[in-house]
Design a protein around this nucleic acid. Structure first.
Length: 956
DNA sequence: GCTCTGCGCAGAGGA
């Protein structure tokens, strides 16, 4: 049986003598959460064990969860005895951690129920924490390596790029591709990367060819022996291996062992790992064996039974005949006993236990000799700066206490975010399909339509929704495509190429028959018969935040840090130049941005011409000879700023980003990754202005770039390390934002929810400027936001803006509106229904309001509806025509409409963070130009002072 | 409980 629970006390480890001799054991007090029988017959297929574990045991878990804390404390804890080497893993446990023991034995001892490990058992610490195979690999070599990779990332270097290329070509060969065609294509794809490395396609191709020769020879050899066995003599020219024998690059997740990774290849169910190094020894390198053993464990959970692995060292050639063995091939087969597999799980447990604590790791070295280590310098610098003990020694001086304290704090906060990502992974198997679909994290019950092999051996897969459903899955996303279950079934990492059938979209645009079932087109390495798609959680963002923090604190200039830590005031040059002559604050903002020697802060309330100001500042910087990085949290903001630049006649910029992220009208400026290395490099390096999201600024490519100035928009929506990702690349920086609007989106409540922008604005009021004239709202609309959020400083830029009404629009007559709606701000009292996140009465009333405005001549496209919850957004969507924009507050930020209707979904009380955060209401109320209608329950709104003032303003 | 954008995924390796 499998036993799972939460550690409820301290673990006792001791040595006892048994009939087999001395043995270690650890006694772990555990509060059981799950006991699953595994003694089913051998024939039992995966599906039945699956159902068994979803049955009574799950119900018991649910029962436990609903019990009160007090009740839980009185529950009896049981003892799990971990024998032998498992005592080492048990010794890592701390109260609160989760433990899973497979194939455990149950017995009664002195009236107490006990469990213990058996010879077939595995002990898994924190099983929900998925550890990467490559992390286990570096951990076994030296735990410091694991930290260093995590903290500072792996920079661009040729050996790594070459290794990647050889792997890609290997995969192509397995998929039956022609060698030369594959090499050419793969090198072309990495044009930009090779350009940055200063490599020519010709020499790289030669390198790859040499490595590939070893692979081809080996594949050919394997094919011959297979042919002999099967008597097949069809003389097939291609090296394409028999389909059933091989599988390339499979992503595997183990919910039992808490491991995930992608195997290079699988041959007859056993892992094959490719290494582009040379190894003339008889045995594979130990860390390589460990890596292969990880994949073996993963494959075993997916129904295989694995006892061998193969390592392919492609630098070995026939000339390198091994002295000892006479071995001619680059391949080394080795057997994997249960001892190795268990050792691997214990390594994995060490990482999982260490990551349970989210503090900065101190790190300890393995037995490897530091003098041979390629990471030695980085290792010494990190130990020196963080004042950690190091066998290799330390370089540099330790960070001052306040910086060290800050580093620790932000490190923890980022790790908390990472943990949230891990919780998302766990949900892949903890939630059932319906729950995931309800959470918008999966599309289920898809109808598989067809698969089509593409050139290059990949597959195009098509599926269709049986009924319309919403999800967070979008075009360009990477998803887990499965035939039913993302972890237990056949699953493959796939990219969403197209989402939505064009025909269906066109048909639904003009009727209100509601949403149509959508058609999906995906691409993947293998032809999965897709019936379900799950969002694939990614740690990429947290990884990049961590390296941005590392770079800012450990590698950043002292002057920069003096400013960040409040030890030196930002300095500015003098200038008499006037950049904008009709708006004093905008001119001051551009002046500050251009003359800043450290940093400038531009506070831009709604409609104050932020984007225009940014574009003007960039042009002025370029004129002074500066190379400028333009960045923002979202793609939309980056493209908006570029659009403003283009409107001002400036087009010497390059947009770096993904094809699906960059807006269509900016795609012509997008830097392609593929092509001629020198051309790509020139495009990037010769651009005066480079624009990318902050996430992209943390990419390997962008980290190779340097700038004079970084200008960051939407800075109030960025976490501190998120901001560093951009400003680390530049000497000076200017942040533009509004901390009275939406804060950063973070999963966990922590330090990351305050932006660097906000902190610096408070720290250095003199380095900042607030734009105070807005070009959007009728004066009456603007009053409340100005008073409530901007100390009354916000005012209309011109009399025209102050006095704008619907009457100015062509074909609109205010006389056709009912009296209350003639005022630019009005309130509609709706008693509302009792549901929590929707309100159908409000929705119906809003539909009526839209008809009223339409009757008065207002076009549907000029009207927007804002609701606090997505549920209400779709409720309203069911009531109103599809050409009226209906969205959440968050997604409306940055845009505006002539008429805005706000649905408050407020009945009874106003509890809930959505309403507590007044910044949200600021955003909602400042979207309209000419008319604002508030729809909600007066009594509920009056219960809060801010909303009460809002009503007074609307009532006037 | 609710809001939710990004990112070539994971891994590629030098003696």
């Amino acid at each position: 049986m499998n036993v799972r629970g939460t550690v409820a006390g301290s673990v006792e480890v001791r040595t006892v003598s048994t009939s087999y001799g001395e043995s270690d054991l650890a006694e772990v007090p555990v509060q059981l959460t799950d006991v699953t029988s595994t003694d089913g017959s051998q024939e039992a297929c995966d599906q039945t064990t699956l159902e068994a574990s979803d049955g009574p045991a799950r119900e018991r878990t649910a029962e436990l969860e609903t019990q009160t804390k007090a009740e839980l404390e009185t529950l009896t804890t049981v003892t799990i005895t971990c024998w032998g080497k498992w005592a080492e893993s048990a010794d890592l446990l701390e109260p609160g951690m989760e433990i899973l023991v497979t194939e455990a034995e149950e017995r009664e001892y002195q009236g107490e129920q006990q469990y213990s490990t058996t010879g077939d058992s595995y002990v898994v610490v924190e099983p929900d924490f998925l550890v990467n195979v490559t992390d286990i690999r570096s951990w076994v070599e030296c735990p410091r390596l694991y930290y260093l990779n995590k903290l500072s990332g792996v920079p661009l270097n040729y050996p790594v790029t070459k290794g990647t290329l050889v792997h890609e070509v290997f995969g192509d060969l397995l998929r039956g591709q022609d060698l030369e065609a594959s090499i050419e294509e793969r090198i072309d794809e990495r044009g930009l990367e090779l350009g940055l490395l200063g490599e020519s396609p010709k020499s790289v191709a030669e390198d790859v060819r040499q490595n590939a020769a070893a692979i081809e020879g080996w594949l050919e050899q394997g094919r011959l022996t297979e042919d002999e066995k099967s008597g097949d003599e069809d003389g097939n020219e291609s090296f394409a291996p028999a389909e059933s024998e091989w599988r390339s690059e499979q992503l595997l997740i183990s919910e039992t062992f808490g491991i995930r990774g992608r195997a290079d290849a699988i041959r007859r169910g056993a892992p094959v790992e490719l290494k582009t190094g040379k190894n003339l020894k008889k045995e594979p390198r130990f860390k390589d064996k460990v890596q292969a053993a990880c994949y073996a464990l993963l494959l075993e959970e997916h129904g295989g039974s694995v006892d061998t692995g193969t390592l392919l060292y492609t630098k070995n050639s026939a000339l390198d005949r091994n002295e000892e063995t006479g071995d001619l091939t680059p391949a080394k087969d080795f057997s994997m006993g249960s001892g190795l597999l268990k050792f691997v799980v214990r390594l994995r447990n060490e990482i999982a236990a260490m990551e349970f604590d989210d503090g900065v790791p101190t790190g300890h070295e393995g037995n490897a000799k530091c003098e041979y280590c390629f990471e030695r310098d980085t290792c010494m610098v990190v130990s020196g700066r963080l004042d950690q003990e190091s066998k290799a020694g330390q370089i540099g001086t330790a960070l001052p206490a306040e910086e060290r304290e800050y580093f620790d704090r932000i490190y923890r906060a980022i790790e908390e975010e990472r943990r949230e990502v891990h919780r998302e992974y766990a949900k892949l198997w903890e939630q059932d399909a319906e729950e995931r679909a309800e959470d918008d994290r999966a599309l289920i019950d898809l109808e598989f339509l067809e698969k089509r092999e593409l050139e290059g051996g990949r597959w195009e897969l098509r599926a269709r929704q049986r009924s319309p459903a919403t999800s967070k899955i979008r075009e360009g996303d990477l998803v887990l495509a499965s035939d039913g279950h993302p972890v237990r079934g056949e699953a493959e990492l796939a990219r969403i190429e197209r989402f939505g059938d064009e025909r269906a979209e066109r048909n639904s645009a003009n009727d209100s028959s509601g949403p149509q079932p959508q058609e999906l087109v995906l691409t993947a390495d293998e032809p999965v018969e897709v019936t379900r798609l799950d969002i694939y959680p990614s740690e990429l963002t947290t990884d990049r935040l961590l390296t941005a923090l590392h770079d800012a604190l450990l590698k950043g200039s002292e002057r920069r840090k003096d400013v960040l830590f409040g030890r030196a005031d930002p300095a500015f040059e003098d200038t008499e130049e006037v950049f904008i002559d009709n708006n004093e604050r905008q001119n001051e903002a551009v002046t500050k941005a251009v003359t800043a020697e450290d940093c400038a802060l531009i506070h831009g309330p709604p409609g104050t011409g932020k984007t225009y100001t940014i574009a003007r500042a960039i042009r002025a910087m370029v004129e002074r000879g500066d190379r400028v990085l333009l960045s923002a949290f979202t793609n939309r903001a980056v493209d908006n700023a570029l659009e403003a630049l283009r409107e001002q006649g400036f087009t010497d910029f390059i947009r770096v980003g993904t094809e699906s992220g960059v807006r269509e009208d900016m795609l012509s400026h997008r830097l392609e990754r593929s092509g001629d290395p020198e051309e790509r490099l020139a495009e990037l390096e010769e651009a005066q202005v480079v624009a990318a999201t902050t996430a992209t600024c943390g990419s390997r490519t962008m980290k190779e770039q340097s700038f004079d100035v970084a200008l960051v928009d939407e800075a109030a929506q960025l976490t501190e390390p998120g901001t560093y990702a951009a400003i680390n690349l530049a000497e000076r920086f200017a942040l533009v934002g509004d901390h009275e609007q939406l804060p950063p989106v973070v999963r966990a409540e922590n330090e990351l929810s305050e932006s660097l922008f906000e902190r610096l604005v408070e720290l250095y009021p003199d380095a900042g400027v607030m734009l105070d004239r807005q070009y959007r709202m009728n004066q009456r609309i603007q009053v409340f936001a100005s008073r409530e959020f901007y100390d009354g400083e916000l005012r209309p830029a011109t009399p025209e803006v102050a006095g704008r009404t619907l009457e100015d629009l062509e074909g609109v007559s205010q006389d056709d509106l009912p009296e209350p709606l003639r005022d630019p701000v009005s309130f509609v009292d709706v008693a509302g229904d009792a549901s929590q996140y929707t309100d159908s009465e409000e929705a119906a009333r809003i539909a009526g309001l839209i008809e009223t405005y339409e009757a008065a001549g207002v076009e549907r496209e000029s009207i927007g509806v804002i609701a606090p919850f997505r549920a209400q957004v779709s409720e309203i969507g069911n009531h109103v025509p599809s050409d009226v924009a209906v969205d959440t507050v968050d997604r409306f930020q940055g845009s505006s409409k002539e008429v805005i209707i706000v649905s408050f979904v407020a009945t009874g009380d106003l509890e809930g963070p959505i309403f507590e955060d007044y910044r949200r209401i600021n955003v909602a109320l400042t979207r309209p130009k000419r008319a604002l209608v508030l729809v909600g329950d007066r009594r509920a709104l009056e219960s809060d002072p801010v909303y009460e003032r809002m009503l007074e303003w609307a009532d006037r």
